[in-house]
Design a protein around this nucleic acid. Structure first.
Lengths: 259, 259
DNA sequence: GATAAGAGGTTTATAAAGTTGACCACTGAC
DNA sequence: GTCAGTGGTCAACTTTATAAACCTCTTATC
């Protein structure tokens, strides 16, 4: 957190700007894996930069694992997802908070679907696992065990998806949980923005679990949607509060230093 | 609207970045009129730029009427508001869409307050003027007269504030209406984002007016809040739709050019 | 198999932008 | 009148970016 009223300017180079734009297009899904980029000469012209500077940017993107260049053939978006998201894509997402809202939007529909199917199809072993996860969620909250809570959260959602017995869903959600498991969005700022203590989160997880165990598809779906809605509202509020804090701090700096 | 998949990079100079940061601080209310900026040597160090480049930026801000420099004394934020907002501040606000939300937030409370007082205190002449404004709103909508609608809108809100008989409120809202009267936010994009036709807007204005004429403070206040809430929701939706359109267009460009 | 076009890869010279540092003039406090 | 701190100006140097030329690889065509 800066204590300064005036921030140092970015001094972004031309290559920095090119990298930023291409990364934004990757995050937004405009550029998908396998896509061939325009030739270097063409792209340099489109982006109004010199070819050496464009090449500098492309080299950095290649070193980050986001693109591949082939001598004599062209430049392509690298394979970013498969069984799991590539480290390159995970790192990219982590540096783009806006991706979190898309991530939640996707998760909302997928997890509502998963919760509904799980309520209909959970087997006895599925129920055992879900029950165990629920207990673990309670216990790690009581123990104020952050790392444990994160693992319990991911285990719970994974168990719900497994209980849906829909292979495609299980497969696709594997990549999504990669983000959660590696703590991409579970950072200090995020956790603080939610309810202070996290108790509401635990209760929401338990509500989903109980609806599944009771075999109530509508209730399970509604609880899953409510959970993700809550997370999104909290996160948005946290961002807005952070922005206001920054502005207020700068205002107070001005008063302190004389104005 | 760009038809290109890749946009030219900004090529912002160091001076551009300095100007942008200081303008942001002016819009955010961090730097207020009369405030003395740090010395050039100090500010250059804080912002991590050379002194000649800082001076280039300050010169542009001075030419824009936002700051004043005095040889041997220092650099100060110019007088930006008084009876009315300075052209410099109006121009600055126009270039910062985020200011619109603050503007609406401020208007919401002020106009709710004004509507309530107007319902309690409107005299017979006040009512005549408000009635005439309501008729003008209806007529300009029927005639599809955009310019007339804009003028009728401002006249109506101004009449409501006048009917409140609170001198401070009348005085303060004068500057706010400056923005509306000069069409700062009533641009094509904004009008399109609201309901397509604007009929709902007219109905909301009439609801406020009718509550005032009927002498119902609570109803007048609620109608004013609902009106501003509607405008804000519509504008926010318009911005989001615009962003999605841009992303979708770039995606379709990729498919068309081969991918 | 040879050729051509279009791709990526490298290097040099030049131009543009930015920084460093020194000095001048004005203002206000003492 | 002096001094410190402010804005104002300018030259020399460094860094960044651009333009242009050339090399090497790949693929399609004949």
């Amino acid at each position: 957190m800066s204590e300064q009223l005036f921030d140092p300017v970015d001094h972004d180079s031309v290559a920095d700007s090119v990298v930023a734009q291409i990364e934004d297009m990757l995050v937004a899904g405009i550029l998908k894996e396998g896509t061939r980029l325009p030739s270097e000469r063409n792209l340099a012209e489109l982006m109004d930069v010199s070819r050496p500077k464009l090449r500098e940017a492309l080299k950095r993107l290649e070193e980050a694992g986001l693109i591949v260049t082939r001598h004599g053939e062209g430049t392509f978006v690298a394979a970013l997802t498969g069984q799991a998201m590539s480290p390159a894509l995970i790192d990219l997402y982590a540096r783009h908070p806006v991706a979190f809202f898309d991530y939640l939007e996707y998760r909302r529909t997928q997890e509502a679907f998963a919760a509904r199917l799980a309520a209909e199809r959970a087997t006895a072993p599925d129920r055992e696992i879900i029950r165990a996860c629920m207990e673990r969620l309670r216990q790690t909250w009581v123990d104020a065990d952050d790392q444990g809570s994160r693992e319990a959260d991911a285990a719970f959602h994974s168990a719900v998806v497994d209980a849906s017995h829909n292979r495609t869903l299980i497969h696709m959600m594997g990549s999504i949980f990669q983000l959660t498991r590696q703590g991409v969005f579970y950072n200090r700022h995020f956790l603080q923005s939610i309810d202070g203590s996290g108790k509401l989160l635990v209760e929401q997880h338990l509500a989903i679990g109980e609806a599944i165990l009771a075999g109530e598809p509508e209730a399970a779906e509604a609880a899953a949607v409510a959970h993700i809605d809550f997370v999104e509202r909290s996160f948005r509020k946290g961002l807005q509060a952070h922005e206001r804090e920054t502005v207020a701090r700068k205002r107070s700096l001005l008063l302190r230093d004389g104005g």
